[in-house]
């Protein structure tokens, strides 16, 4: 079997997503073992940063281009990718597990009759078999899954596969103008949410819970997030109370995040909250109840009052940022 690998490179607003570059890093685990090449394909209008795909190890890059592809269209993107897959005899397709990747991957799997595994945190080859590891039950367990089909579709969890050092590459970007697109489904408008950084993409998240007492006090959370260049997250309790929007909710019925640093302020650490953030690399908890379950998974904690501790954190961090 040829085991030709395709990584879908996602762009938003004409910029290549880091999570897609991580998908190339993940793909190397398979291409190395199979001795096969990694092809990259992207869809959109003008796109910046495609050379980074080559620098991460893509052996070819195709840009399927049209002004009508500036915004996402499930139908057009899926058809274009499907054609590319057929023409290039692709066996394994890898996406980042982003909003777009999660939408497209299953459609491609149905189109090419492939086994599919999503949100994978590890990929390996054992003999001829591809085996992936993925969290289930909101991260309370992990499964190792073996593909038994010849075609395979995989999505990988962002922030899990570290990027390699960029390498020099002479790969050229093959731009192919597209026409006669299938726009039976298309984005007609983009609505930005208030937050500057989305929790799903942030390297640092500062989350607040009911311990903040009222919506007004989230100013404190925002201020700490600002000095850290972090996204603001929230527990479900405060989303349900209408203090924060659902797009900020972290947890089982919110977003699953794995930032480098997660700071939980006045959050008890209910099992459904932990489900969404337990794979964060470092966890800090500030909670006045020293028995709060959040301390069970926190690397560092202070068992005290957020209203006293957070202003001090802001002050200290400002100091070091200024030096």
């Amino acid at each position: 079997m040829a085991n030709n690998i395709l990584v879908f490179i996602e762009q938003r607003n004409g910029e290549v997503k880091k999570a897609s570059l991580e998908a190339i890093a993940a793909a190397k685990k398979l291409s190395g073992a199979f001795g096969s090449e990694i092809k990259a394909a992207t869809i959109g209008n003008e796109i910046k940063g495609l050379e980074k795909a080559a620098q991460q190890g893509a052996a070819s890059i195709v840009h399927l281009k049209s002004a009508e592809l500036l915004n996402y269209s499930t139908s057009a993107y899926a058809d274009l990718l499907n054609n590319y897959i057929a023409e290039n005899d692709i066996d394994i397709v890898i996406f980042a597990n982003t909003a777009m990747g999660k939408d497209l991957a299953p459609i491609i799997a149905s189109k090419i009759d492939a086994g599919i595994a999503t949100d994978c945190t590890e990929l390996k080859v054992n003999g001829d078999s591809v085996i992936v590891t993925r969290p289930v039950y909101a991260g309370k367990a992990l499964v190792d899954v073996k593909f038994t089909s010849s075609k395979k579709v995989i999505t990988i969890r962002p922030n899990t596969f570290p990027l390699g050092e960029p390498v020099e590459s002479s790969v050229e970007i093959n731009v192919m103008e597209q026409s006669n697109l299938n726009l039976s489904s298309k984005v007609v408008e983009l609505k930005k949410s208030g937050g500057k950084i989305d929790v799903a993409e942030a390297e640092i998240i500062v989350s607040g819970g009911r311990g903040l007492k009222e919506a007004e006090n989230f100013k404190l959370v925002e201020e700490l997030a600002d000095v850290l260049g972090a996204a603001v997250g929230a527990s479900r309790a405060v989303v349900d109370a209408g203090w924060r929007s659902h797009s900020e909710q972290v947890g089982q019925t919110g977003k699953t995040v794995s930032p480098n640093l997660y700071i939980a302020l006045g959050i008890s650490g209910a099992i459904q909250h932990l489900a969404g953030m337990r794979s964060s690399k470092y966890i800090v908890a500030i909670n006045k109840d020293k028995d709060a379950p959040i301390f069970q998974i926190a690397d560092y904690g202070i068992a005290g009052d957020v209203f006293e501790i957070v202003p001090k954190m802001i002050e200290e961090i400002k100091k070091i940022k200024e030096n």
């Binding site: 599919i116 499964v143 899954v145 073996k146 301390f295 998974i297 904690g301 068992a303």
Partner: peptide, 21 residues
Amino acid sequence: YTEILTMSKPPAKSPGKILGE
């Protein structure tokens, strides 16, 4: 087209330090 080989618990995270109150 896929088969679960094993299910396991994620490596337990040891609780960290409470640095103060």
